[in-house]
């Protein structure tokens, strides 16, 4: 990753994450097809809702005949982490116009957020609208097209998992967390490792009593508070 922040660099930087989108997008399309969703519904979910994990949950809840209110609430729960990510990311674009901020915000994902956080580690804490917009747009289009192609292929491929594509998403997060770990000079390696250990432990513990999405949120917030405390103790 270079410190350059142009639209072209954005296109180049987002490329590795595209594999994750294609793998999971195809998988979603196939699942949606076998769950009897129409092609229009698949496209609608991907291009309007645009929320990877929430789309899987919506599909299974529709299949199980859950009420609309429950589907809305689950979607909010799964996506509530976006409030945290958007709040973090928005700080880099305060000087941009409201319209540009809304456009960037509308297309933020786990992956483009994580990518941006990696990027600002090599640019000395700067991001640009052009760069972020390029990453967002590529992610959005690749995701939408992959899910629709998946839905069309749905009848042809019985078991896409045998090719290992479903692991692309996990691999991507492993890569992103590792790059974050070694490149965030502001927090440093030790503090980040401590936070990681705390998050993993808290997530494991809360998973026993809470829904997985709530546990994710609790572990994240807990990890941030823990990090703040450790940093404070270290400074004094």
């Amino acid at each position: 990753m270079t410190p350059e922040l142009t639209f072209r660099t954005g296109l180049k930087d987002v490329l590795p994450t595209v594999f994750g989108y294609i793998g999971v997008g195809l998988a979603f399309g196939i699942v949606a097809h076998t769950s009897h969703l129409s092609l229009l519904m698949v496209a609608g979910l991907s291009f309007v809702v645009y929320a990877g994990s929430a789309q899987f949950i919506i599909t299974s809840m529709l299949l199980a005949g859950n009420p609309l209110s429950a589907i809305f609430f689950s979607t909010f729960l799964v996506n509530s982490r976006m409030i945290l990510m958007s709040t973090s990311l928005a700080q880099y674009f305060r000087h941009e116009s409201l319209g540009k901020n809304l456009l960037l915000g509308a297309l933020v994902t786990d992956e483009t957020f994580a990518l941006a956080m990696n990027k600002q580690n090599v640019t000395g804490g700067r991001l640009s609208f052009a760069w972020q917009n390029a990453a967002n747009l590529v992610a959005y289009l690749v995701w939408g097209v992959s899910t629709v192609v998946g839905a069309i292929l749905g009848g042809l491929i019985a078991n896409p998992e045998q090719f290992g594509f479903d692991f692309a998403l996990t691999a991507m997060f492993i890569g992103l967390v590792y790059l974050q770990l070694i490149s965030d000079k502001h927090l440093g390696l030790t503090l980040q490792l401590l936070v990681m250990g705390f998050v993993a432990l808290l997530y494991y513990l809360t998973l026993r009593v809470l829904d997985a999405n709530l546990a994710l949120l609790v572990a994240t917030i807990g990890g941030c508070l823990f990090g703040m405390e450790v940093k404070k103790c270290h400074l004094h």
């Binding site: 994580a114 967390v177 770990l181 997530y203 703040m228």
Partner: peptide, 17 residues
């Protein structure tokens, strides 16, 4: 608080999978 969000959230997402 927000400076810890990236590492915390990415770790949690890894654990989830």
């Amino acid at each position: 608080f927000l400076t810890f969000v990236p590492i915390a959230i990415m770790t949690a997402l890894c654990c989830q999978s």
